[in-house]
């Protein structure tokens, strides 16, 4: 079996409908479990006091804001190279979920920054590239909405997605090579494995991150199935109008 079989809308829809109930249940357990654990069962930190609890909403949402765009990039490339409609629709479906994640990350970051940095906002490389990523999300959605021909819309939004990926990557790696700004580097470096967060904070964070990831996947699948159905409906309506 090849993965490209799921480029067929019927097969994609059938698979999505099969796994969606599991994903929805799993995301509810992980998101609620991670957030309740982090909110109610972690101690206040010495330096950050109770604001440490904000990481359980800020870090997973920022993670999915960036990874959501990178998922859209992969789908856009598949569209540009192989012209699979489902991949273009999946990218389109991910954008509203990604923009919500971006808004949450920006909001919770500002709310945390005010007491800790003494300011809601600073034009730091990571924050600025993240804000630009948010604007790219809005532009991407506006472009899909503005163009009637779906193939043209998919082409143009894919190009926009390629350009926006620079800012998605910048917002992730800016702290590593841009030695300025207030935003701290990652406390959980995946590559080196040298995390600086104690287990008591790290474990609920992992659960929350897994929850946001599964929730993102579930929402994108449901939205992609919706877009496939709407497209099929448009075809049937057009046939009915001609008859």
């Amino acid at each position: 079996m090849s993965i490209w079989e799921f480029a067929n809308p019927r097969k994609f829809t059938a698979l999505s409908l099969k796994i969606l109930p599991t994903l929805v249940g799993l995301s509810a357990v992980l998101v609620l479990g991670g957030l309740i654990w982090g909110f109610a069962f972690t101690p206040n930190a010495d330096k950050f006091e109770s604001t440490v609890k904000i990481i359980y909403v800020h870090v997973p949402s920022a993670l999915m804001a960036i990874n959501g765009w990178l998922m859209m990039l992969v789908c856009s490339l598949i569209w540009l190279v192989r012209r699979h409609h489902v991949s273009a629709l999946a990218a389109r479906a991910a954008a509203p979920v990604g923009v919500v994640m971006t808004v949450i990350a920006l909001f919770t970051g500002a709310v945390w920054g005010q007491p800790m940095w003494g300011t809601w906002w600073v034009w730091d490389p990571r924050l600025t590239s993240f804000l630009i990523l948010f604007l790219f999300y809005l532009g991407y959605m506006a472009l899909w909405a503005a163009i009637e021909d779906t193939e043209t819309a998919a082409d143009l939004t894919s190009i926009l997605c390629l350009v926006g990926s620079v800012f998605a990557l910048l917002s992730r790696y800016a702290v590593n090579f841009w030695n300025q700004g207030l935003h701290q580097g990652t406390s959980i470096p995946v590559a080196t494995g040298g995390r600086t967060v104690a287990d008591v904070y790290f474990l609920p964070l992992v659960v929350a991150m897994a929850g946001f990831f599964v929730l993102f996947v579930a929402l994108v699948l449901a939205r992609t199935v919706t877009l496939i159905r709407e497209r099929r409906l448009a075809v049937l309506d057009a046939q009915e109008a001609r008859a």
């Binding site: 957030l35 909110f39 206040n44 006091e49 109770s50 604001t51 609890k53 904000i54 909403v57 800020h58 949402s61 949450i104 909001f107 919770t108 709310v111 945390w112 005010q114 007491p115």
Partner: peptide, 16 residues
């Protein structure tokens, strides 16, 4: 016990 940062923490969770 969220001490003096209760507003910020609650606002973050509500905003999520």
């Amino acid at each position: 016990d969220m001490g003096k940062y209760a507003t910020e923490v609650l606002l973050s969770y509500a905003g999520t």
